[in-house]
Design a binder for these strands. Structure first.
Lengths: 196, 196
DNA sequence: GTCAGTTCGTAACAAATGTTACATACCAGC
DNA sequence: GCTGGTATGTAACATTTGTTACGAACTGAC
């Protein structure tokens, strides 16, 4: 990035810490800042009017939430939720500078368009997963994604939580996890799934 | 739009006509131009390695394909297809000017970010449709979307074609269309569905 | 230790969707 | 008219997913 851009970013943004489980962006509250992930892990989820949810993707260090950009620009409140999957440190940049910086800095354009590209791809992958694959494959992909994002082979979640993120029921997840265990792709313990 | 931008657009772009059913963007061929729809209707579809498809959304007059932008910038070939749903007239703009114009023209930034916003919303709506709703509702939404985009109450498609766009089988669509007919939401004729 | 709350396993059943098979209707060309 | 190809209707069945119900195993507070 251009040194001038870095300086502006540092001068104008502010640090924000979110602890695990904390809300970064709620469905109704319109954001006026764009979050850049410095450390930790955020989770982006789609929410339905009657409380149902689907996991969309993770935001890792160095990434930003493309949706919050468009969301802020338009002033609309799209129905999705960003929460902290791990304790995270964010750099919050007021949206009012967006247009200015996009015009001024080539590297900022690259950053923003890159974010869009990545998010588009993730959404398309999500659609693939939901439309073309059955629940067992969707579940396994979810486990692998989580492993990838957290960098750990251990996933500390209950069947109920996973069911919620995939918009299905606990019983279904238990059934399929048992199957994955029989196929020796995972091992199960209480509140913990281990990827093999 | 700024007059200077309009002039550049007119000088640098070229006209392209596509007739109904024609391919605008194929999954492998990497695009070097960004298509702006002047007249007609384009259809954007996601394609799976083994030939399965899902309808994503339509592009109407004045709109552009956000995905082709990011796709070109990165030089990647995302797997989606753009075809002409009706005879269409496009204005093709070389991607090499993108960065320059985004930096230079405020209204171009608005245009591009607006395109992203709209497409993001459409993809999210698609995800909602697929994850939260059953096939009957998905089908009805598809019919209404098509009516909206074409501006006509008559949809000239076979059950087979619709099944393909929703990634299901002809028999399922026939079943559900019959149901919609009983509910007096549509009327059916050969190769033609009429929305009531 | 007991107890309440949570998590997980499993069975039995219901509903939605996918598959196969075949009959019927329609249309275009001859 | 007849004929072959296409589009639709419908039944019977398989598979996948969702639901309800209940028991067993674990956990933490007391």
């Amino acid at each position: 990035m251009e040194p001038a851009l870095v300086e502006e970013l540092l001068n104008i943004g502010r640090l924000k810490k979110v602890s695990e489980g904390g809300m970064v962006m709620s469905p109704d509250g319109s954001m006026s800042e764009m979050p850049i992930v410095l450390e930790g892990l955020l989770k982006v989820t789609r929410k339905d009017p009657d409380g149902k949810e689907v996991f969309l993707y993770f935001l890792e260090g160095g990434e930003t939430c493309a949706m919050s950009i468009t969301c802020c620009i338009e002033g609309k409140t799209s129905s999705f939720i960003v929460t902290a999957e791990k304790d995270s440190i964010l750099w919050m940049v007021p949206m009012t500078y967006m247009d200015r910086w996009v015009a001024k800095y080539r590297s900022f354009r690259k950053f923003v368009f890159g974010a869009y590209q990545t998010r588009f791809d993730e959404l398309l992958t999500t659609i693939d997963s939901v439309v073309f694959h059955k629940m067992d494959e969707r579940l396994y992909k979810y486990l692998l994604d989580t492993k990838q994002a957290t960098g750990s082979f251990e996933i500390h979640k209950t069947h109920e939580q996973i069911a919620h993120e995939l918009n299905t029921s606990r019983v279904v997840i238990s059934r399929l996890l048992k199957q994955l265990e029989r196929e020796e792709k995972i091992e199960q313990h209480r509140n913990l799934i281990e990827i093999l």
